[in-house]
């Protein structure tokens, strides 16, 4: 993405100036009348177009030298002096172009982040599934409808040493989550609470934050998620 922004930027105005000056010294009668207009018109274009234009002009200059080149040169220097202000103005314009494209990119990303539903193959959608009201619902985390420990036939108390399981039922600040969030039935909620207290008491887990290894993993995942795209 970054490369796209760069390529869409206007070329730096000074870069193509020297070869164009050189062309102006020896140019044909027809060309001598309009090198300036050419320079001015091409300055705003992209670097690619400018270089293409230069190469063609170089060819014509070599084939047809002209006596009126000096006249062209004089007018060119006059214009250059006058246009010194133009260059700085063009610089600000290019900066504005960069700013615009960054703003455009940020807007696209903003809008894309509002599409919260992660589509899966085989989903069926109707127009209302694409509406903001519907996307708002996919943003929120809902409580599980199934008791995870019952489903797996596990007793939470047997896993007090498994900090990966314990951390899932703790908040960022190390508090035990409510059964409304965890979706566990009362018996299993009491068991997981006891398991967390037990492992903290044994010194297997910190009491005011999640286990460091879990923190490191989430940090890495977050870095992957927020990485610049492109």
């Amino acid at each position: 993405m970054a490369s796209r922004i760069l390529s869409s930027l206007p070329a730096r105005p000074q870069s193509g100036l020297l070869p164009r000056l050189r062309n102006a010294f020896s140019t044909s009668a027809k060309a001598s009348q309009d090198p300036l207009t050419e320079i001015i018109s091409s300055a705003g274009n992209t670097a690619k177009q400018a270089s293409a234009a230069t190469s063609t002009r170089t060819q014509t200059a070599q084939s047809q030298p002209s006596p009126e080149a000096t006249e062209g040169l004089r007018s060119l220097t006059r214009r250059l002096v006058r246009d010194r202000g133009d260059i700085s103005r063009r610089n600000t314009a290019s900066r504005r172009g960069l700013k615009d494209s960054i703003a455009q990119f940020a807007r696209a990303q903003d809008l894309e982040r509002q599409q919260t539903r992660r589509w899966k193959q085989g989903d069926v959608y109707a127009p209302h599934d694409l509406t903001p009201a519907e996307m708002q619902k996919w943003r929120k985390r809902t409580r599980p409808t199934m008791d995870a420990f019952d489903a797996l036939g596990m007793n939470p108390l047997d896993h007090y040493k498994n900090f990966a399981i314990m951390s899932e039922y703790m908040t960022e600040m190390g508090r035990i989550r409510n059964s409304y969030d965890t979706g566990l039935r009362p018996v299993n909620q009491r068991r997981i609470a006891k398991a967390i207290r037990r492992s903290i008491g044994m010194g297997l887990m910190p009491s005011v934050h999640k286990h460091p290894e879990i923190l490191e993993q989430t940090w890495k995942e977050g870095r992957m998620r927020n990485r610049p795209i492109g």
Partner: peptide
Amino acid sequence: VFHSDTATLP
């Protein structure tokens, strides 16, 4: 658990 109760079902 991300879910919408009004989404079109598969």
